[in-house]
Amino acid sequence: MDVLYALLLQPFVFMAQEPLIFAETVVKGLMAGVLYSLVALGFVLIFKASGVFNFAQGTLALFAALTLVGLMEKMGDGLPKAAIVVIAIVATIGVMILLAMIVERFVLRPLVNQELIILFMATLGLSYVLEGVGDLTWGSDVKVLDIGLPDGVFDIGGVYVEQLDVVAAIVAGSMVTVLAIFFNKTRIGRALRAVADDHQAALSVGISLQQIWVIVWSVAGMVALVAGVMWGSKSGVQFSLSLIALKALPVLILGGFTSIPGAIVGGLIIGLGEKVVEVFWYDVHGGAVENWFAYMLALVFLMFRPQGLFGDKIIERV
């Protein structure tokens, strides 16, 4: 009986008694979810255009953040802060585009028409290479990333919200908007969707897969940069950044591998679920659910709705 009470009733009593704590937990959860979504977005982009789960997406975020911090350190204090930040960001975007070209030329192109699992293995290898290159170039110590994002706290009617989280939410929101416009209104975006629908037909109408891959990996690299900056500002740029890729996996299973809105909603649900279950169901599990809650939720989804909330119906490609 006690267990049932703790499971079914007590949490809601608690919520009703402490609306402020509840509100704060929800906000915290949603904000954490936004960051998961940012990482998941990069996965969706590459999966949509090539059907490959890019294991290196997390490392891509780490690599982008490392490059950014490294470049800012290199430039020293000679210039005003804002100028350094802008130059470093532009240069990092350049590096990510260059990286996309290298990946296309030396990883994807030689593996054209191979099984998807082989491409997946290649991205696994790529993630180790990137990690190594990042370490060698910029060193492996934990770095502080400070690009001047606000780090104070908003007090909204007694609920505390970190300003950095709000910035992350705004950035994620505008990024989704920009990506939606890019995908739906531009010639390249149309081609990307065409490639996602039918590789061969896209080839037959003269869309160059190589060009599309470079573009997709560049965009994924920029999304990784944003994710890396947000996570890096929060908890420092370090190796564990690449492990957020593992958190993005359940987000994708929830939202659907092919859906941009799915990545956002999936991230929000997981972030929210984690925090609320952690705080309000504490008596049932005794804490530390944040590490496995997302995976359990993903498992349930895999059993009952394998294509995720917004994913395309799963159709075997021939």
Partner: peptide, 11 residues
Amino acid sequence: VMEGRHCFEHL
């Protein structure tokens, strides 16, 4: 024009 049309279904 490929056999079986091959239109982009989601466009």
